[in-house]
C-alpha cells in the first residue's frame, strides 16, 4: 500500500472583486508512513487571515511531522491532543516572532492523517470531509456552525466566552450541524443530520478511519474548506463530487482537477467559486494498483 497526497486552493470571485487576498490555504504531504492533508479558512472579517490560514495549516503539518508515525497509533485521542498541543506551541512562537495578532489568526483547521494503521480526520471549524471508496461511492460529512459564525481554534487562547456568547451564551447549546450524505452512481442519499453542542464542536469533531477501511475500501480522503459550498449555480455535494472525480492520479492530481473545475466546469454554471476554496486529498494506492504490499 502506498499513499499520495495533493492540495490546491483558489481565490473566490467575491474576493477578487473586493480586492481581498485568498484567505484559504491547503497543504498535504507524507511523513514517514503517514499521509496528511490539511486546509484552513481565514475569517473574511478578521485581520490578515490569509497569513493566519497559512500559519494554521503549516503548523498542523509541522506537528504531524514532529509526531511521525505516532499520530496513527491506537490511541486516537492522545494523537489529537498531541497534534493540537504541538501546533499551538508552534503558533505561539511564530505569533510572537512575527507580531501576528489574534485577529490575524482567526482561521479554521481541518486535517486528515492516514497510514496503514488507519487514521482520522479532525475538524476544528467548518467545512466538508469526503471519503471516496474504491467502489466509487462518496461519503460526505458537512460541518456547519449556526449564524455563519464558525469556531476558530484561536478562540481557545483568550475569548472563548465571546464565541459562546455569539451562539446564545450556553456551551450546551447545539450550534454545530453535521450532515452526512452518500453519493453513488445512481443517487445522492441523505444519511443523517446531527447537531452538536458548542462545547463538543470547540473540541473538534473527530472522524475515525478504521485500519480495515484503509486496507480494503478507501481510495481517497479529502478535506475541503466551506468554499466548496459556495460555487455559483452548483450544489455543494455536486461541487465536491466534481473535485473528487480525478481523471488521472499522476503528480499534482488535486491541483489539476481543481484548475479544470474552476476554469471549465464551475464557470459553465456561473462565476465559479464565489468564496475562496481549498482542498487537500490523500490517495490510497492499493497493492492491486501498484502500491507495494
Amino acid at each position: 500500500m502506498k499513499f499520495h497526497s495533493d492540495d490546491y486552493f483558489h481565490i473566490g470571485h467575491e474576493h477578487v472583486v473586493a480586492g481581498k487576498p485568498c484567505q484559504d490555504y491547503a497543504l498535504s504531504g507524507l511523513s514517514g508512513g503517514v499521509a496528511y492533508a490539511t486546509v484552513s479558512d481565514g475569517c473574511s472579517t478578521g485581520g490578515n487571515t490569509d497569513v493566519g490560514a497559512r500559519l494554521v495549516a503549516l503548523s498542523a503539518a509541522k506537528a504531524i511531522h514532529t509526531l511521525g508515525d505516532a499520530v496513527t497509533g491506537p490511541k486516537r485521542d492522545y494523537a489529537v491532543e498531541a497534534i493540537v498541543f504541538h501546533q499551538q506551541t508552534i503558533l505561539n512562537e511564530v505569533k510572537t516572532l512575527l507580531s501576528v495578532t489574534r485577529n490575524d489568526m482567526l482561521a479554521t483547521c481541518l486535517y486528515a492523517v492516514v497510514s496503514e494503521r488507519g487514521g482520522f480526520v479532525h475538524v476544528r471549524g467548518d467545512g466538508v470531509v469526503a471519503f471516496v471508496k474504491r467502489n466509487g461511492s462518496i461519503l460526505l460529512h458537512r460541518f456547519d456552525w449556526a449564524n455563519n459564525t464558525p469556531f476558530y481554534p484561536e478562540y481557545l487562547n483568550d475569548d472563548v466566552s465571546s464565541f459562546v456568547e455569539a451562539h446564545g451564551g450556553v456551551e450546551d447549546a447545539h450550534a454545530l450541524t453535521e450532515e452526512k450524505w452518500l453519493l453513488t452512481n445512481n443517487e445522492c442519499k441523505h444519511i443523517s443530520t446531527t447537531t452538536h453542542s458548542i462545547a463538543h464542536g470547540m473540541g473538534g469533531m473527530l472522524i475515525d478511519i478504521n485500519q480495515e477501511v484503509v486496507k480494503n475500501e478507501l481510495a481517497y480522503v479529502a478535506v475541503f474548506t466551506d468554499g466548496v459550498e459556495a460555487v455559483d449555480g452548483m450544489d455543494w455535494k455536486e461541487a465536491a463530487a466534481h473535485l473528487l472525480d480525478f481523471k488521472n492520479t499522476a503528480g499534482v492530481f488535486a491541483k489539476r482537477r481543481m484548475i479544470r473545475f474552476v476554469t471549465k466546469e464551475a464557470t459553465a454554471r456561473g462565476v465559479g467559486p464565489s468564496d475562496d476554496i481549498a482542498y487537500a486529498a490523500i490517495r490510497v494506492e492499493h497493492e492491486s494498483q501498484g502500491g507495494a504490499p
Binding site: N248, A250, G251, V252, K255, R256, I259
Partner: peptide, 9 residues
Amino acid sequence: RFDKLGATE
C-alpha cells in the same frame, strides 16, 4: 503515458 505526467499543463 499519462501516468508519467505529473504537472498540470
